[in-house]
Design a protein around this nucleic acid. Structure first.
Lengths: 210, 210
DNA sequence: TCATTTTCTGACCGTATGGTCAGGGTTGAG
DNA sequence: CTCAACCCTGACCATACGGTCAGAAAATGA
């Protein structure tokens, strides 16, 4: 908050260009995959000459890595809704809401993440083994505590987490399929709300929390 | 069944080579994506010269299309478990079993499918709009009937289907992540069984069928 | 203003890829 | 046995891609 609001032209331009490039890269990587994406396409989408991309990001891999990291951050933040909840109804309910919102707001990021993991996580394997594993263990313990306290049925926490991830991210990763099955139209606000309610209802009742 | 068991050398070789190429292609497309896969890599994995691939499959696109179609067939067959079931417990339970088995047995195929849909279904859009839409509408009607008959809670059938697809396919598409969170080891027979039970328990209770 | 640093970009390069093709080998029906 | 149809493959080609670089342009601080 004590940061200077005034940025030099250079810093402002740098910031804007990097953001522009990252946004374009996220979209292109999501739609074409790492192998199918080209620096030229990203450059065009960002409205910059290709050589300029290489000024900001030395290699395609480096740019890709930044995109994936960016998504991972957003992902982790959704966990905030999980913690400090008195029980599964509030905690898991809020987590589903948060993840569904992310799926709607950042569908490209979700796809890049999915693609990365499907290909064996070549660039974020270390994150999986450290941050994600830790995150998962902690939430699993929390869920186990809820089970022990009789707040929900005895469920294997890991499989519950997988189901939460799978179901919420499906609305981003398979959004095209869902749209096709929805008469070719994107889900409306009302439909997104219904989706969230469906997911929450089935899972919360499924784990015996309601 | 009245087919001749005797095949000419040519037919046998053709059949074997095509199968070998398709298997190699499925794996390579799954691990590298369409753009990242190379004909040379597929050829090496199939143990054939690259030029020979182009004798059997004129273009990379044609080979890819065959791989996707092959998966789609397997996918549809899982629906058999769904039909002719007296109620959701048997029908959906069997469907989950079948889809989980496919995820374990054909993880590459599942990934290729996921990748195809994530990229906007460039080669199987027509399947989505015809076969899949029809399939989905029919199952949705069946589920709605079960709801009307009071055999399960009032759930939007579409969202239930999405949850079934998402959850079961997650074990294939995100298998690497699951393996990493499982101390780097693939799920054992016992763990797969537990996964199936978890999924079935949560969903069947979640829809009020048990 | 001027020197210095940072930013920008058109033109270029080496490589890898999908695809082709001529020509040699193999198979099987008559 | 013969020969036409089919199968196979090393060598080759055009293209497209990631990345480089010299030097112009712009911003900054003194």
């Amino acid at each position: 908050m004590a940061e200077p609001i005034r940025l030099s032209k250079r810093d402002a331009a740098r910031r804007e260009n990097e953001a522009r490039i990252l946004a374009a890269a996220e979209k292109v990587f999501a739609e074409a995959g790492f192998g199918g994406a080209t620096m030229q396409l990203i450059a065009d989408m960002a409205g910059l000459p290709k050589a300029n991309l290489h000024y900001y990001f030395a290699t395609k891999e480096e740019l890709y890595r930044k995109v994936v990291q960016q998504i991972f951050e957003i992902w982790l933040h959704a966990a905030d809704s999980f913690d400090n909840a008195p029980g599964p109804v509030e905690g898991i309910g809020a987590y589903i809401d948060a993840k569904m919102d992310i799926s709607r707001k950042h569908p490209f990021g979700s796809k890049v993440w999915a693609s990365e993991v499907m290909h064996g996580a070549p660039v974020i394997q270390d994150y999986l083994e450290t941050t994600l594993r830790e995150w998962t263990d902690n939430r699993a313990k929390l869920i186990q505590r809820w089970v022990d306290e009789g707040k929900m049925a005895p469920i294997d926490p890991k499989h519950l987490l997988y189901m939460l991830w799978a179901t919420t991210q499906h609305y981003a990763d398979f959004g095209h399929q869902i749209e096709t099955l929805n008469a070719g139209k994107p889900l409306t606000d009302r439909q997104w709300k219904a989706a969230k309610e469906s997911v929450k209802t089935i899972i919360l009742r499924g784990i015996g929390a309601i």
